[in-house]
Write a protein that binds this DNA or RNA. Structure first.
Length: 422
DNA sequence: TTAGGGTTAG
């Protein structure tokens, strides 16, 4: 989804298409008009944006499925005349950051609109739509004719998008073609490596390589992809370690860490988070705790929300609820990071039910969520709570939450209604 | 934010 987002609104080509759709060009105004005109224009644009967001938000509603929302957006005449822009899409995605169905519908709607624009461009012979993916190099070349720069940055966006959509072999071929015109950088290599990791090509390679694992593998990979031999950096190590952890090759994952330390590559927060995750997956809770409590401070690397989340999830997963709550307290005491609903509260809420600490711990958690951190409950959290409370014989409380969610126009699931009725 | 992380299931 992230790559689609980038394709739609994040890269220069997408922005070009969206700018075309709005049929207005702010940049041309910026150079040829006095300040008052530009200010007026900005104000008009901002009001226009707010109106568009209001119209779309009303149309999207609450609690509908992704398909229902998408269809209603596509088929609505009033929505069809809305000027699509990067700002508009970003505003909507932010608005629906806790509601993935609506967010995904907005994505797909934007994609749909972009496709229409591409079709329009194709009809005007501006672009060959059917060759976009098959001949991405040529499309990329077209960027120049459209007045956009063809550089390492745009090449990386193209390669990354292809890799994230699992067109890894195509990305490699395109890279081989483009490298004659555009200089690759460390990002380019890591994008391709990540792509290969995602299609699970790394673990088999590791099976045949025993000695000097990372550099040998890296050289093999570089030769296969005809890359210049660039030294692997912390991103490379993190990517490979994670791929190995997901494939449950924990010994090999640890060798990556050893190798990284041996060559003096400095770890960062994301690396440590992945390392903790790796140890958690391997069931090595004490090692994970040691990384969190000892290795990170020693390396002067500060934890972030995800670090705490990983620890909390791990302890909950291994039924060590007290330790999970200790981490929560520690996180609150540190005052450095904000909790988030998805990974932080869900394991803890579940733990409260499992431990039968409904009146005490659950009460406190909910009160903190709402009053202290101002986190709005979403459909999944309401469902989790209502189902748990019903099972704990707290139907009255469950029903209060049910009414609360309905008041907020969040449509309960059929199963939730059925459960309460029973 | 041009590259890497996430125990998400009730």
């Amino acid at each position: 989804m992230r790559s689609i987002h980038r394709l739609v609104v994040g890269d220069s080509f997408g922005i070009f298409c969206l700018a075309l759709a709005s049929r207005t060009s702010f940049s041309s105004l910026a150079t040829s008009h006095p300040t008052e005109v530009r200010d007026f224009w900005r104000k008009e644009q901002s009001q226009d944006l707010t109106r568009s967001v209001d119209i779309l938000t009303t149309k999207i509603g609450k609690g509908n499925s992704e398909d229902v929302i998408l269809q209603s957006l596509i088929s609505d005449g009033a929505i069809n005349v809305i000027h699509l822009s990067e700002n508009l899409i970003n505003r909507l995605l932010f608005r629906y950051k806790d509601d993935w169905k609506s967010a995904l519908a907005v994505f797909r709607w934007a994609m749909e609109k972009m496709r229409e624009i591409l079709e329009e461009m194709r009809q005007e012979s501006l672009i060959a739509l059917d060759t976009i993916w098959k001949d991405a190099v040529r499309t990329f070349d077209d960027l120049q004719f459209l007045g956009l720069e063809k550089n390492t940055e745009s090449m990386n966006v193209l390669l990354d998008t292809l890799c994230k959509e699992k067109f890894v072999e195509q990305a490699r071929e395109i890279y081989l073609e483009l490298k004659h015109y555009v200089a690759p950088n460390a990002h380019t290599f890591n994008i391709l490596i990540h792509g290969w990791c995602n299609i699970r090509l790394i673990p088999p390679l590791f099976n045949v390589i025993v000695k000097n694992i990372i550099s040998t593998w890296f050289t093999t990979f570089s030769m296969k992809c005809k890359l210049k031999i660039a030294p692997p950096n912390v991103v490379t190590y993190t990517t490979i370690m994670c791929a190995l952890a997901k494939a449950e090759k924990f010994d090999e994952a640890l060798q990556v860490v050893e190798r990284m330390n041996a060559v003096g590559c400095r770890p960062d927060t994301l690396f440590f988070n992945s390392f903790i995750y790796t140890m958690g997956r391997a069931g090595r809770i004490d090692d994970a705790t040691h990384i969190f409590k000892v290795a990170m401070p020693k390396a002067s690397v500060a934890p972030n929300t995800s670090t705490y989340n990983s620890m909390i999830s791990m302890f909950c997963y291994y039924a060590q609820k007290e330790r999970a709550f200790d981490i929560l307290k520690e996180m609150e005491k540190s005052g450095l990071c904000k909790p988030d609903i998805q990974t932080y509260y869900h394991p803890l809420i579940k733990s409260c039910f499992k431990m039968r600490k409904v009146d005490t711990w659950l009460n406190d958690i909910l009160s903190d969520m709402v009053n202290k951190y101002h986190i709005g409950l979403d459909l999944s959290t309401y469902t989790l709570l209502i189902h748990g409370l019903c099972r704990a014989d707290r139907c009255k409380w469950a029903f209060n939450l049910f009414e609360e969610m309905v008041d907020q126009d969040i449509m309960p699931r059929y199963k939730t209604c059925r459960l309460l009725l029973d």
